[in-house]
């Protein structure tokens, strides 16, 4: 009797295992085909030279793709650009998102309208955002130069996207416009965990606005900060659309990003091997950030 019951128990276990894998089958097939196969493929390809078309042109070249990458001045520009982009967009979006979330918290008249307004760019395609901002940056009829001329600041007008000194900042401004609404939503969610009582108690204690912010609000949003920062960094590494649509990495190579370099190497210069090396470096940093995010979530759950 004992035997039969443990037999049926293990039969149930086997059945559960089979069910589990059957449920995951569609996901595993698709992830396997498009993600995991791709992962192994680019790692292997990063040690070869290849035009991306003819199998017989594939030649092993060891670590040379990586050596080329680490000595390529364009790669250095891309690295600096992505770092500037990361630091500026993450910081500005964080503070702006938090400030907007705080301003919307009392739910004054019009709050719903403002919340929707700030979120709308998140729901728009980067193609729309890019074309919208081209309309602002356009040198002759664009809103920016027209306004500057109208208020007598003719000397400040320029071809915003064509000037290596301003092109990156134009991209950064468009990105901040597009994604601040997303960070606002994170902070609105984070602020709901702080009760009105906390704010009122601080007020009774005689604490001013800034010290309430610094001592209570800021630290208790710790887990929101980490999420916003990590997601912002992940987004920075991925950045492609907005750059490709606004400048294609130009003028010259002034606004190259890792992803635009990668796309040019593979799709335009037939350097699939070199592109794969860029991919591997990007994947490495993306996975490191994912690990950080998982660690932060664990700490959050543990309290």
């Amino acid at each position: 009797m004992f035997k039969s019951s443990s037999g049926s128990l293990s039969r149930m276990k086997t059945q559960e295992t089979i069910s589990g894998y059957l449920f995951l089958l569609p996901l595993l097939i698709m992830m396997g085909t498009f993600v995991f196969y791709g992962l192994f493929y680019v790692i292997r390809l990063s040690f070869y030279r290849w035009d991306g078309f003819m199998p017989e042109t594939m030649v092993f070249r060891g670590l040379k793709n990586y050596l080329q990458l680490f000595t390529d001045p364009v790669a250095l520009t891309a690295m600096i650009n992505v770092l500037i982009f990361m630091v500026v967009t993450v910081t500005v979006q964080m503070f702006l998102g938090l400030i907007i979330a705080l301003l919307l918290r009392p739910k004054l008249q019009g709050s719903r309208f403002f919340k929707a307004l700030f979120y709308i760019p998140v729901a728009l395609s980067t193609a729309v955002i890019a074309r919208t901002f081209m309309g602002l940056y356009e040198p002759y009829f664009g809103v920016l130069n027209t306004t500057l001329r109208a208020i007598g600041l003719e000397s400040l007008t320029r071809t915003w996207l064509g000037d290596p000194n301003t092109a990156l900042w134009c991209i950064i401004a468009a990105n901040i416009f597009q994604w601040t609404g997303a960070q606002m939503v994170f902070y609105i969610a984070g602020l709901t965990t702080i009760s009105d009582g906390v704010f009122e108690a601080a007020q009774i204690d005689g604490a001013g606005f800034w010290s309430t912010m610094g001592r209570i609000v800021w630290p208790s949003l710790w887990s929101t900060h980490t999420t916003v920062i990590v997601l912002g960094m992940v987004g920075a590494i991925k950045t492609f659309d907005i750059v490709w649509l606004l400048t294609q990495g130009g003028p010259g190579n002034a606004t190259q990003f890792p992803a635009t370099m990668l796309y040019q190497a593979v799709a335009q210069n037939s350097q699939a091997g070199y592109g794969a090396a860029i991919s591997v470096v990007m994947i490495f940093f993306s996975v490191v950030l994912a690990v950080m995010q998982i660690q932060f979530n664990k700490r959050k759950q543990e309290g």
Partner: peptide, 11 residues
């Protein structure tokens, strides 16, 4: 693998 951009697997 969730945070990896699709463009990394272009080839």
């Amino acid at each position: 693998t969730m945070s990896i951009s699709m463009i990394c697997f272009i080839t």
